[in-house]
Design a protein around this nucleic acid. Structure first.
Length: 371
DNA sequence: TTTACCTATCATAGCCAGGC
DNA sequence: GCCTGGCTATGATAGGTAAA
């Protein structure tokens, strides 16, 4: 049964050796795995395929209920195929494969599974099963079973963990914004910030990436008026996912009175329009990626003196997925985002390591362990 | 069983350092 | 100074699960 794959082995020492795992996964070579193009689906299908293949052979005995526990809260970052302590990854196209390991540092000895007798399974013991699938024939081209040590020795260390904070604007919450007066949910600055703001100022000579300046910080009310006339109803090309954010940034910056060139908006950063301590986002999907900073946790913002992640102002434009038309706007200091919407409970992080595609070319048609 | 919420998945854009 | 490739960050979205 496949569901047994989600229970660790009775003995931490009873795991099938990597070389044997590779041998058992040999039948996958040439097998078809229908790629849907939906990343999450493809990843899940691969995991099921590997689970079923392993489950059809000899597995270590399953641990008894109550004899073990997942150490990380909610099992975050623990490999999914626990019985063989394996995580699966799908490799498709490109010149290199970006191996992304979520919520654990793959080369650290941090405890993932703890048995009541004191035995443990550690993060650096996980076996990585990388399966390359051909994007046109949808057939498995090779399987590599790798240990974290091997990956580090051969390709270098995993990169610095990158943090991702998320906020959810549910369809219901989105509807509330659409139906709010002026299609806008608006909250003013904290009084401490408000007294540093002005109602109007000529910004044409300023760089919007510069630090906020006394006397040149617009009040939220002023920004609100500009947004109402220039952003609500604006169309942000739906096809250009990655550039829509820049398009909005450009639109807002010029509406505020800055002189903006294409080059200016290419410079990312937090907050986007630092001179106004204003972070700008376009959303047609519910998940808002906040990136490194989240107003849920107050932090000084580097290069934005006097502001923290809670006082930085957020402008979130909610657009229609098909037309790209902006149907509502949330404009408020970061501190208030949480009153309206839901934060994803914990922050997530990932460690990345790129692996050249040539590595997989070498093992075409093979299933090997730490070659 | 169905729905709603939360999280994990892979792709890729954009930045940056090192080589020429 | 330009090009290349690796690293980091951001992006949409479906799977998974808890609640209804």
């Amino acid at each position: 049964m496949e569901e047994d794959m989600y229970v660790p082995p009775e003995q931490a020492t009873a795991l099938t050796p990597a070389s044997e795992i590779a041998r058992r996964l040999k039948p996958l070579i040439g097998q078809q795995l229908r790629l849907t193009g939906k990343t999450r689906t493809d990843g899940a299908n691969l995991r099921k395929l590997v689970a079923a293949t392993l489950a059809s052979g000899n597995l270590p005995a399953a641990a008894k209920e109550g004899s073990w526990r997942c150490v990380p809260p909610k099992g975050k970052g623990v490999p999914s195929l626990l019985r063989e302590y394996v995580d699966t990854y799908i490799v498709t196209s490109g010149n290199s494969y970006n191996l992304q390991v979520w919520n654990r540092d793959p080369s650290s000895p941090s405890v993932q599974i703890e048995y009541t007798d004191g035995a443990t399974l550690l993060a650096n013991q996980v076996r990585f099963v990388l399966v390359r699938v051909d994007t046109t024939s949808h057939r498995v081209r090779c399987v590599a079973v790798l240990s974290p040590d091997y990956i580090v020795n051969r390709f270098g260390k995993f990169g610095k963990p990158t943090v991702k904070q998320q906020l959810i604007i549910t369809p219901t919450a989105r509807q509330r914004v659409y139906e709010a007066p002026g299609s806008m949910v608006f909250l003013p600055d904290d009084p401490r910030v408000a007294k540093r703001t002005v109602a109007r100022v000529d910004l044409s000579g300023c760089n919007f990436h510069g630090e906020p300046e006394a006397g040149r910080l617009l009040s939220m009310e002023a920004i609100k008026a500009i947004v109402a006339s220039r952003v609500i109803g604006a169309v942000l090309e739906p096809k250009a996912t990655k550039t829509r954010g820049q398009a909005l940034e450009q639109l807002v910056a010029s509406a505020l009175g800055y002189k903006v060139s294409d080059k200016d908006v290419m410079i990312g950063g937090y907050p986007d329009i630092r001179h106004q301590a204003l972070e700008v986002k376009v959303q047609d999907a519910p998940t808002v990626d906040l990136g490194r900073y989240s107003p849920q946790f107050e932090e000084e913002v580097a290069g934005c003196a006097g502001f923290t992640s809670k006082s930085v102002r957020y402008l979130i434009a909610l657009t229609d997925a098909t037309t790209g038309k902006c149907r509502g706007v949330v404009l408020c200091p970061g501190a208030h985002l949480g009153d309206q919407f839901t934060y994803v409970a914990d922050e997530s992080f990932k460690c990345q390591r790129s692996i050249p595609m040539a590595f997989f070319e070498q093992m075409e048609g093979m299933s090997v362990a730490n070659p």
